[in-house]
Simulated scan of single mutants.
Amino acid sequence: MKKSIKNIIALGLSTLLLAGVFAGCQNSDTKKTTDAEKSNVVLRIGAQPYPLYSSIYVAKKLGYLDEELKKVGATYEWTDFKSGPLVNEAVAAGSEDIGFMADMPAILAKSSGQDIEIIGNVAYGEKALAVLVGADSNITNPSQLKGKKVAYVKGSYAQHLLALVLKNAGLTFDDIESVNLAAGDMPAALEGKQIDAAVLWEQFVSKLTTEGRAKVLVDGTGIKKGNMVTYSTKEFAEKNPQVIEAYIKAGQRASEYIKTNPKEAAEAIAGDFGVTPELMVKIFNNLTFTQELTKDDIQEIKTVEKYILDQKIISNEVNMDEFINTKFLEEAGITK
Rank of each mutant, 00 (worst) to 15 (best):
K6N: 13
L17N: 01
V21R: 09
F22Q: 12
G24E: 07
C25W: 13
T33S: 15
A36P: 07
A36S: 15
P49L: 00
P49G: 01
Y53M: 06
Y64N: 01
L65W: 01
L69K: 04
K70D: 13
A74D: 10
T75I: 14
W78L: 09
F81H: 06
P85Q: 04
L86C: 05
N88L: 00
A90E: 08
A90N: 02
G94V: 00
E96C: 07
I98Y: 02
M104I: 08
A106Q: 04
I107Y: 04
I107K: 08
A109Y: 07
S111T: 02
S112M: 02
I116K: 02
G120Q: 08
L129V: 12
L129G: 02
A130S: 11
A130G: 06
G134P: 01
D136A: 12
N141W: 08
Q144D: 13
Q144F: 10
L145I: 02
A151M: 01
Y152G: 02
A158K: 11
G170T: 05
D174N: 08
D174K: 08
I176R: 06
S178R: 04
K193D: 05
K193R: 07
I195T: 04
V199G: 10
Q203R: 10
Q203W: 03
F204N: 05
R213N: 05
R213A: 00
N227V: 03
M228C: 14
A237Y: 01
V243I: 01
V243A: 04
I244F: 05
A246C: 07
Q252F: 14
I258R: 02
I258L: 14
E264L: 07
A266F: 00
E267Y: 11
E267N: 13
I269L: 09
D272S: 15
M280R: 11
V281T: 08
F284V: 06
K295E: 11
D296F: 02
Q299N: 15
K306Y: 14
Y307L: 10
I313C: 09
N316E: 15
